[in-house]
Write a protein that binds this DNA or RNA. Structure first.
Length: 718
RNA sequence: GGACUCGUAGCUCAGUGGUAGAGCGCUUCGUUCACAUCGAAGAGGUCAGAGGUUCGAUACCUCUCGAGUCCACCA
């Protein structure tokens, strides 16, 4: 054996060997009990980060463990097209090149998008392999693949026929920068110090943080039990709007907090969620003041065309002059911003597509208990969200992804009117329909412009990857998945949706075990982000310390649901520790394999555990075998319960401080007698360690007496 | 305003109803030894604070303080 362990060479050699010998390939046809693991598809927008590396290492460790236990393992990989995020990243790139989405036009842009997807994908794919992932590459899926397209169409069509999809004008969170509706879950709140303005509205004074929406006011509201205003409820007042006088009613509504400001608020149903609801209850008209680019509309008179923040400043002098603005107060509140671009989002009324979630939610709540969560409390967190679920806005004005498969008949439905499946001049189809319109008999189809929300397709991930809606062998064998993993971040967007969709369409939960890993943050506890420049490149760590060492370092952060803090230095420290552990293993190997006495070298060895145990007469032998047994039990238990951080700790402690430090030292003066036990314990350790450190364990295992072609196929020690 | 998580050695983190743990860092010593990518020895902690349950609490309960996350239409 070489004196020094050549990590790079060993990693390349064995990964190629495993792939060439089909060790990663799932075999749905065989009779072994299945164990299926579904890789969450990373976005095809850039390189993989430390969190991915951890997630994939966990998946791989469990897959290898289950494989050694004799299961028929499927670890299925894939990537997500990630609509909004992908377009955002690509458009930034185009901006740098001095061009843009709109300059290129849809066709050219899409060509460019596919090229960009390939580049990103290649980087992702390369990292997967170097991390040692034992995924079945022959079954890799991209969310825009034809088989997923088929599933998405089925999903849409089924919802449509079940009357769960509808189109309508609703108030939605709108990001002016991304020019798209976004969902509640994609909105973040930032604390801002702003002003609260007290404005004269006829006989009343009211407080508002948003004077610029004044042009869209159609009423005033008070709490119906507020004695100060009780007698005025229902009366109409002439109100100065800066563009003329307008009649507004004072309505009574429970939603109003009498303690806020003066107890009176202005109602702008077109640009506030609360006001929209109040408007619905009192039949108030809606006026659009803010357009989809975040500027005021012509309703705002001379302020038209200004951005919201500009307009707010610009109108203050006039408000003061006319005696409308009577008081200003410092005011700290939270404003909604887009989680991606941090732009203040505007509630805007827009034509969007929705899925009615109530029936799905009810079913999910009944059966969510069938999913075993780690940590356990995630079941409650997700259930609570599902209990209060809103309808799902699934339309997005994008170009990258699935276009809504709705076609309008231009002859009988030129304005794209549609409420539900009974609307006329509408048809659901993936491609341009070839049939005639059932209403007017003509063939003049045009497709809905918008695209489907990315999660509409990734919500089907557990099913679509196995060929659903076809009843495939794979689906039969591997669904529901035994193991799924995710960051806590997307528990609602993705995990909750997969559970609801899967139960709705297949009547089965999508996965039996749902593991949430924590998030690795920087030393101040902030998320890693490009803008902060605090990210750590897993590839850099891997090149420096080796894949096995990096994986071990990541496992030490893998306690379910626990966040960790790290920077390059602390990651280096941990990785270095496990690189040293690898060196230790290598030297144990050299001792056992190379440093045999001549007597042993001449002997023909076969593995026979009874021989091993019989020869273990010495107290040290008995002790180490006993401790090994305990270690096997503990490691197995911790793997079964997905406590990889404990499993690795146990092994580290046993191998280094029991086996190497104590037992090996004790054998130096009775080498021949101890050799069978040395080999037995070492081989068992390598097998136990293989799920975590796949490369060095294979390399060393091949050098000692063993059965079979690869440690991947060795039986898990018992 | 609700819900949750965390607070343990200088740093990053495990852990447990019964004498406080690891790695890194630090101090001292040690290279004919499988291993200096190492070994031996060591310093370093009222386990955030207060109260309660208990024979016994760092662990279980309550409160306080501190850090963080998520949810919520506060104008």
């Amino acid at each position: 054996m070489d004196k020094v362990y050549n990590q790079q060479e060993v990693e390349n050699k064995w990964y190629k060997f495993w792939e060439d010998e089909n060790y990663f390939k799932a075999t749905p046809g065989d009779s072994k009990k299945p164990y299926s693991l579904l890789m969450p598809p990373p976005n095809v927008t850039g390189a993989l980060h430390l969190g991915h590396a951890m997630q994939h290492s966990i998946l791989d460790a469990i897959a290898r463990f289950k494989g050694m236990q004799g299961f028929n393992v499927l670890l299925l990989p894939g990537v997500d097209h990630a609509g909004i995020q992908f377009e955002g990243t690509l458009n930034k790139l185009l901006e740098k090149e001095g061009t843009s989405k709109y300059k290129l036009g849809r066709e050219e842009w899409l060509k460019r998008a596919w090229k960009f997807k390939e580049e990103s994908y290649n980087s992702v794919s390369a990292t997967w392999r170097t991390m040692g992932l034992s995924a079945d590459w022959s079954r890799e899926v991209f969310t825009l693949d034809p088989k997923v397209a088929k599933a998405v169409l089925t999903e849409f069509k089924t919802f449509w026929e079940q009357d769960l999809i509808y189109k309508g004008a609703y108030i939605v969170q709108w990001c002016p920068k991304d020019a798209t509706a976004i969902e509640d879950v994609e909105v973040e709140y930032e604390e801002r110090k702003e002003k609260l303005y007290y404005l004269k509205y006829g006989p009343f004074t009211l407080a508002t943080a948003r004077p610029e929406t004044k042009f869209g006011d159609t009423a005033m509201a008070v709490n119906p039990n507020d004695k100060r205003y009780k007698n005025d409820i229902g009366k109409e007042f002439e109100i100065e709007t800066l563009t003329g006088m307008r009649k507004m009613k004072l309505v009574g509504d429970e939603a109003i907090d009498p303690k806020f400001g003066t107890g009176v608020i202005k109602v702008t149903p077109g640009h506030s969620f609360v006001d929209y609801e109040i408007g619905k209850r009192h039949n108030l008209p809606i006026i659009h003041v803010i357009d989809k680019t975040g500027r005021l509309t012509e309703i705002a008179g001379k302020y038209a065309g200004m951005k919201v923040a500009e307009a707010r400043e610009a109108m203050l002098p006039e408000l003061r002059e006319k005696g409308i603005l009577v008081k200003e107060e410092e005011y700290t509140h939270t404003v909604p911003v887009c989680e991606r671009c941090k732009t203040v989002v505007e509630p805007i009324i827009s034509e969007e597509w929705f899925v009615s979630m109530q029936p799905l939610a009810q079913k999910a709540l009944k059966r969510i208990g069938e999913v075993s969560f780690a940590p356990k409390n995630y079941q409650k967190i997700i259930s609570d969200w599902i209990k209060n679920i809103h309808d799902w806005c699934i339309s997005r004005p994008l170009w990258w992804g699935y276009q809504i498969p709705v076609w309008y008949c231009l002859s009988c439905n030129p304005t794209h009117q549609v409420a539900n499946k009974s609307s006329r001049g509408v048809i659901i189809s993936q491609n341009k329909p070839t049939e005639n319109c059932s209403s007017c008999g003509k063939q003049d189809w045009v497709q809905d412009e918008q695209l489907l929300d990315t999660w509409f397709s990734s919500g089907l991930w557990p099913m679509a990857t196995l060929g659903w809606p076809e009843n495939t062998v794979e689906f039969e064998k591997y669904f529901p998945w035994d193991f799924e993993i995710s960051a806590g971040e997307i528990k609602y967007l993705w995990i909750a949706r997969m559970i609801m969709l899967s139960l709705h369409f297949t009547d089965q939960i999508p996965f039996k075990n749902m593991f949430f890993h924590g998030m690795i943050r920087d030393l101040q506890g902030r998320k890693f982000s490009k803008s902060l420049g605090n990210g750590i490149d897993p590839n850099e760590l891997r090149e420096q310390w080796g894949t096995d060492a990096l994986r071990m370092a990541l496992f030490s952060y893998s306690a379910p649901g626990r966040d960790g803090r790290a920077n390059k230095q602390t990651m280096d420290e941990r990785a270095k520790n496990f690189r040293n552990f690898g060196t230790k293993l290598w030297n144990i190997g050299r001792f056992i394999i190379d440093m045999k006495s001549n007597v042993i070298l001449n002997e023909v060895k076969e593995i026979d555990s009874s021989t091993t145990l019989r020869s273990a007469q010495n107290d040290n032998d008995k002790q180490i075998l006993e401790k090994l047994n305990k270690t096997i039990k503990e490691v197995t238990k911790n793997l079964e319960t997905f406590n990889l951080h404990l499993a690795t700790e146990t092994l580290y402690e046993f191998i280094w401080h029991e086996f190497a430090d104590k037992y090996i030292e004790s054998t130096k003066n009775r080498r021949e007698q101890a050799q069978p036990v040395l080999e037995h314990v070492f081989r068992t350790c390598l097998e136990l360690l293989h799920p975590f450190m796949p490369f060095i364990t294979e390399e060393l295992w091949q050098k000692i007496p063993h059965q079979g072609k690869s440690i991947m196929a060795a039986a898990w020690p018992e």
